[in-house]
Design a binder for these strands. Structure first.
Length: 272
DNA sequence: AACCAGGCGCATA
DNA sequence: TATGCGCATGGT
């Protein structure tokens, strides 16, 4: 993989196993939309960008600071060998079908706080509504990045708010959970920084200190916000997959990359 | 320990 | 246009 810079673009070439639409629109992130054919617009790490795939190139258009290319390597998990991981996963016949039906899904490495907050909002909810609530959260409390884009508001910003302040989000009973998460993260009672490296069970325990965070939301935070591809969120769809296809448990080829296997199986089961 | 609140987009009637 | 369904978590 190589990196080039061109005006306001960062261009990665030699990028394999990456479908931009599948990766940005498979229910792991909620701030991307296809603004015109093949051009995906959104905000991550407080950067508003347009993303395009051109052959083996991944083009990120926007305004950048020195060293920003590292952010996007991290965000799209470009240093992980998905080609090889998928090859191994395909030794299982169901995973083979799922991966061949929807190739190029990668696990995004979002900001931990954004992932935590997003998956609190996601509970008992559907994707269009999740996107709406998060958009209103960002417009109401994030920083104005210009051109109608807003950053995801930090925990400190939300920690001083009340449930009434969040009423315009129309997030329902989740508002109190957002506030509790913001307060615990801002105060340091929940330490998001250590979740990347500490024992995964310890990370789970840390997250479920927050009201409104159970096993599923904790697992999603670890997978999509902390780069823990061994995290394995089980929702109603994955529960169906497990009982239908893997009553004895996941196959051995998923060891250590359970979260990646989950994402392929989940998307396949929902869209086949 | 089983069951329902909570809000809203969606599929179905 | 109306009606019921789904959903993760916490509280009953």
């Amino acid at each position: 993989m190589e990196v080039k810079f061109n005006k306001n673009a960062i261009i990665f070439s030699g990028v394999d196993t990456l479908s931009v639409p599948l990766t940005l629109d498979c229910g792991q992130a909620f701030r991307w939309s296809e603004k015109s054919d093949g051009i995906w617009h959104g905000v991550a790490y407080s950067k508003a960008v347009d993303i395009v795939r051109n052959g083996d190139e991944l083009i990120i258009n926007g305004c950048f600071d020195e060293g920003d290319e590292k952010l996007w390597v991290e965000y799209f998990d470009l240093e992980r060998d998905y080609g090889n991981i998928c090859k191994n996963l395909k030794s299982d016949c169901h995973l083979k079908t799922a991966i061949e039906a929807f190739p190029g899904i990668r696990i995004l490495k979002q900001e931990p706080w954004e992932a935590l907050c997003s998956f609190i909002v996601s509970q008992n909810n559907n994707i269009p509504r999740i996107k709406g609530i998060i958009e209103r959260l960002c417009v109401s409390f994030g920083n104005d990045l210009g051109d109608g884009d807003f950053s995801f508001p930090c925990a400190e910003k939300l920690a001083v708010l009340t449930v009434e302040d969040l009423a315009p989000l129309r997030s329902g009973f989740r508002a109190k959970y957002i506030i509790d998460a913001a307060q615990k993260v801002a105060s340091g009672e929940v330490d998001l920084k250590k979740l990347h490296t500490c024992d995964i069970d310890e990370a789970r325990q840390e997250l479920i200190k927050i009201k409104g965070v159970g096993a599923k939301v904790a697992e999603c935070t670890l997978l999509y916000g902390c780069g823990r591809v061994d995290a394995f969120p089980v929702d109603v769809w994955v529960r169906r997959i497990m009982s239908e296809l893997y009553p004895e448990g996941l196959p051995e080829c998923t060891n250590g990359v359970e979260g990646i296997a989950q994402q392929y199986l989940f998307h396949w089961r929902r869209n086949v």
